[in-house]
Computed example of a mutant assay.
Amino acid sequence: MEILEDPIKSSENARHMGVRVSELHQVPLEEQDLEIVERKGVGHPDHICDAIMNEVSVALSKEYLKRYGHVQHHNIDKALLAAGEVQRRYGGGEVRRPMLMVFGDRATYDVDGDPIPVDELAVDTAKKWLKKNLRFVDPDRHVRYQVELKKGSAALTDIFKRQGKFFGANDTSAAVGYAPLSNTEKIVLQTERYINSPSFKKEFPETGEDVKIMGAREGKDLTLTVALAFVDKFIENESQYFKRKAEVEEDVNRFVRNRVKFDSANVNINTLDKRGRGMDGIYLTVLG
């Protein structure tokens, strides 16, 4: 089935695309035999980069609006969080070399000779986000910052100097969206949010924010595989680690089973762990 808007009647409208709605011929996702869903939590490096760059774009847009009444050209969507170096230790380790946060892409640094403190704004925004979302990360001691944002090209920045009701687009892009979430998607998202909730952290303070969940549904059976960083200052030895991990696993299993209607639902945490291997056999971190 395909539905097309009324025929285009003028050259002005000729630049606009019609709306097309097509039917997708496939087995609904919930009825398919296999479904795999992944969620990277708030402390995962990928999530950190995306969230910080989004906040930088928002902060920069607000600064542009305050100064000039409209948003200036910028592309703030590329970042790198390079690993630091730590010494893990039961009872609390130390950071030997801080992480490196690199900001990339382009921004408008001045308008008609009026400078905008883009670099300072980017770093300040990142520090605020880290302080708000990661309990054990000190934005000043544990992270270094490298701003590699450059000025936008003349052809793109000029768009924002042109008169008219609307600015022209500075890029071509396509967006994909869908709704509603499947039951598997819902429980994976809910579980990550639960593990990183204030109430969970109060009950299990040794769990960090770096969480990744892989949900696999085979028919009516669901398995969640969770990678969950533990913080070494709360753990005195290997035995305590496995004891607390078992308690966390029991709690998360209860949370999941109370919210799904699958034939079976199982949560497995840090499946690479192996007793007797010491620090090499457990998922222990300094900053979580």
Rank of each mutant, 00 (worst) to 15 (best):
G113I: 00
R217N: 13
R15S: 06
L34Q: 07
I282R: 00
V143L: 02
L224R: 13
T225K: 02
L222Y: 09
V226E: 05
D251K: 13
Y109V: 10
E23I: 09
E23R: 11
F166H: 15
D77A: 13
L228A: 13
L80M: 04
I213S: 03
E120A: 12
G177I: 02
G69P: 01
A229D: 01
S11Y: 06
V137N: 05
G41P: 12
R106V: 08
L100V: 01
Y64E: 07
S264R: 14
D77Q: 14
D251Y: 06
G104L: 15
F204Y: 12
I159W: 00
I8C: 13
T271I: 08
A179S: 15
V231R: 15
R193P: 06
V56K: 00
G18F: 01
F242A: 02
P28S: 06
E63M: 15
K128L: 05
H44D: 08
Y145T: 03
M1T: 02
D110W: 11
P139F: 09
R106D: 06
F200M: 09
A227H: 06
D273Q: 04
V123P: 15
G104H: 11
K128W: 12
I187R: 01
D138K: 07
I3Y: 06
G281R: 08
E203K: 14
S153Y: 06
E12N: 11
I116V: 10
D138S: 10
G84A: 05
E85W: 11
Q190T: 08
E2L: 15
L24W: 00
L134Y: 01
D33I: 12
Q163T: 15
I48F: 08
V226P: 02
L24Y: 04
V286P: 07
K9I: 00
